[in-house]
C-alpha cells in the first residue's frame, strides 16, 4: 500500500509536470519550467534560465533554454517610391521649322541618373516632349524618405487649370532636359 501510494504520487507528479511543461511551452510568458510554482518571473526575457542577472535586456542574450524567439526582425516598411509617370511637358514655344515626327533625344547622364526625352513634332512645331527615361530608383529621395521623421510625400506634378489669385514659383530649364531636347530637335530640323 505504501509502495502504491508512492507510485501514485510519482505518477501524478509526472503527469502534472508534463502538463505544466506543456503549458509552459505554449505560453512563453510563463516562468521557467525548472523552478517551483512560486517563482514569479516578471522579466520580459521569458523562458530564460532562472538566474537571469543580465541587465542588457536583450531577448536572445541568454542560454539555450529560450522558448521565445528573439525579437522579430524589424519589418521593413515599404518606402514610398514615386510611380514612374511619363510627364508630358507641352512646350508651346516654336523653336524653328521641323519635320513632323517623333524624335528620340540622347540619354543624358545626370548625377542622379539618366534623363532622355522624345520630342513630338507636328505641323512643323514642337508639340510635346515626353520623358523616356528618368531616374526611377531615385535613391536620394528614398534616403530622405527613409530617415524622415515626419515622413515626406512624393507625387508627380500635374498641370492644373484652376483660376488663381496669383502664382508663386521659379522657372528654369534643366540642363539634362535641355540637352536631351536639343538633341531630339537637331534630328527634327528640316
Amino acid at each position: 500500500m505504501k509502495q502504491f501510494l508512492i507510485s501514485f504520487v510519482l505518477i501524478v507528479a509526472f503527469v502534472a509536470y508534463a502538463f505544466y511543461y506543456n503549458i509552459a511551452a505554449q505560453n512563453p510568458n510563463s516562468s521557467n519550467s525548472t523552478v517551483s510554482t512560486n517563482t514569479t518571473n516578471t522579466n520580459s526575457n521569458s523562458g530564460v534560465v532562472v538566474t537571469d542577472t543580465t541587465t542588457n535586456g536583450g531577448a536572445s542574450s541568454n542560454g539555450n533554454t529560450v522558448t521565445q524567439s528573439p525579437t522579430p526582425a524589424p519589418v521593413k516598411t515599404p518606402v514610398q517610391t514615386p510611380t514612374p509617370v511619363i510627364t508630358p511637358v507641352v512646350v508651346k514655344k516654336t523653336t524653328g521649322k521641323y519635320v513632323d515626327g517623333i524624335y528620340t533625344g540622347a540619354a543624358i547622364n545626370e548625377y542622379y541618373g539618366t534623363v532622355q526625352v522624345a520630342a513630338v513634332i507636328s505641323g512643323g512645331r514642337l508639340t510635346k516632349v515626353t520623358f523616356l527615361q528618368y531616374p526611377t530608383d531615385r535613391s536620394t529621395s528614398k534616403a530622405i524618405n527613409q530617415r524622415a521623421t515626419p515622413q515626406l510625400a512624393a507625387q508627380a506634378i500635374q498641370v492644373q487649370s484652376a483660376n488663381v489669385s496669383g502664382v508663386s514659383g521659379a522657372s528654369a530649364t534643366s540642363d539634362a532636359f535641355s540637352q536631351s531636347l536639343a538633341s531630339a530637335l537637331s534630328q527634327a530640323a528640316a
Partner: peptide, 22 residues
C-alpha cells in the same frame, strides 16, 4: 479664400501654368 498657384518650373514657355493650388 485667396488661391495661389505653384508655377510649373518645367514649362519655360508659360509662366502662368500652375501645378498646385494653395
Amino acid at each position: 479664400d485667396w488661391s495661389i498657384g505653384i508655377r510649373n518650373p518645367l514649362n519655360v514657355a508659360n509662366q502662368e501654368e500652375v501645378v498646385k493650388v494653395i
